[in-house]
Each structure stands twice: as structure tokens, then as C-alpha cells.
Computed example of a mutant assay.
Amino acid sequence: MARYTGPKTKISRMFGEPILGNGKWLGKNSNPPGMHGAQRKRKTLGEYALQLKEKQKAKYSYGVLEKQFRNTFVEAARRKGVTGENLIKLLEARLDNTVFRLGIAISRPAARQLVAHKHVTVNGMVVNVPSYQLQPGDIIGLKEKSAINTAVTSNIRGRNPKFGWLDWNEAEMKGTFIAYPERESVPENIKEQLIVELYSK
């Protein structure tokens, strides 16, 4: 199963945002990676560079590699509506991302691991594919044995109230994917229109 395994702080420094991890080193060392930091770089990026940077930011944010991201974009372009918004909706509807948003895992990589290790169920059935696309109404929970495993449940913190497209039942430790989120509800700082322009070349 392909995933990014490189340095996380370097990625955060590249974008100047806590893309991976908590970004605690950004204040101390916020220069871009490299021997000379930003000194030897162009002060203004070209159009293609800006578009590429946004695509890379989206890929790292959601933990998706190039081929899978491209396939997600193709599906977003095929659907009715605005392609950029469709892309964000499809990325948010990934199972690993939803497990993270529900507060079952503390990060997307941790959510991906929970899914891959068969701890997570969708509508009562175990699903171990992190990229599994949820549909409105799907119920996400933990396998019976996992629900009593303190190593799994100790990290559960519950859904953030600002994610209105999800519902979390703390008593049953189950969440519901109510609907695809509206773009303005998704907190990620991604300019999806630049990604659309990049793939439209």
C-alpha cells in the first residue's frame, strides 16, 4: 500500500503550514528546506509553479500519491458541478479522512493505519481500504473487538462540531457520513481552482 514515508517537518516548511504533523517547528525554523532556504529561490513563483504547489499541498494534506490523486480528479471532472469543489468533496469522503474527522484517530496517517489493520467498519462490514469512497448515510464504526481495545479507543476524542457533514454517537462509538461537505465548510487551505487549471493544460 503506497504512502508517503519521508520527512514530515520538511513538507511543513516547504508550504509554511502544518501540512503533516502539528507544525511545532514552523515558528523556530520557518524557512523553506534546503541549504540556503529562501535566499536562492525566485521571489515570485510562475503560474505553473503555483499550480503545482497547490496540487502537492492537496496530495500531502490528504495522504494521496500521484496516480490516485489523478484518478480522483478524473472522477471529480466526470461528475456534475464544479470540478474543484467535487475534488475536495471526494477527498473528504475517503474513509481514512472521515475516520480522522470523526475523531477516532489523531491524524490522517493514524486513521489510515486503523483502516488498513481492519479496525474500522462501514455499515457493519469491515473495510480495510483507506481510499474507500463513502456515500451519504454510511455508518462508520469500530469492529467489536477493536471497540474494547484500549490501544484503539484511548485516542478517540469525538467529532469537531464544525464538521457539520458528520455525526458522532459517543455512546455507540459510531459516526455517520451525512452528506458531501460544502467547500466553505472544509478548513483545508487549498486553492482547488489552481489544481483544475494545472490538469486542464
Rank of each mutant, 00 (worst) to 15 (best):
G37R: 12
Q39E: 08
Q39A: 15
T44Y: 06
L45I: 11
E47D: 13
Y48D: 06
Y48M: 09
A49D: 06
A49I: 04
Q51C: 04
K55N: 05
Q56K: 12
A58Q: 05
A58H: 08
K59C: 04
S61F: 09
Y62F: 10
G63V: 03
V64L: 06
K67L: 13
K67P: 14
Q68W: 02
N71F: 12
N71C: 14
A76C: 13
A77R: 14
A77C: 08
R78S: 15
R79L: 14
K80E: 13
K80A: 10
K80T: 12
G81S: 10
T83D: 03
G84L: 01
G84F: 00
E85V: 13
N86L: 10
N86M: 10
N86R: 09
I88R: 06
L90K: 14
L90Y: 08
L91I: 07
E92D: 08
R94F: 02
R94I: 08
L95I: 07
N97V: 11
I104P: 09
I104G: 03
A105Q: 08
R108C: 02
A110H: 11
A111I: 09
Q113A: 13
L114M: 15
V115Q: 05
K118L: 04
H119R: 13
V120A: 06
V122Y: 02
V122W: 01
G124C: 06
V126K: 10
V126P: 11
V127K: 11
V129Q: 04
V129C: 05
S131H: 04
Y132F: 15
L134Y: 00
Q135E: 12
Q135W: 00
Q135H: 13
I139Y: 00
I139P: 01
G141P: 00
G141H: 02
G141A: 08
L142C: 09
L142K: 14
L142P: 07
K143R: 15
E144M: 10
E144Y: 03
S146W: 02
A147G: 06
A151N: 15
A151R: 15
A151D: 12
V152Q: 08
V152F: 04
T153F: 04
N155W: 05
R157H: 11
G158S: 09
N160T: 11
N160G: 01
P161I: 03
P161V: 02
K162R: 15
G164L: 05
G164P: 00
W165H: 12
L166P: 05
W168M: 14
E170N: 15
E170M: 07
K174H: 03
K174C: 02
G175F: 01
F177N: 02
I178M: 10
I178N: 05
A179Q: 12
A179C: 14
A179S: 14
A179Y: 00
P181D: 01
P181M: 00
E182H: 09
E182Q: 11
E182T: 10
E182G: 11
R183N: 06
E184Q: 12
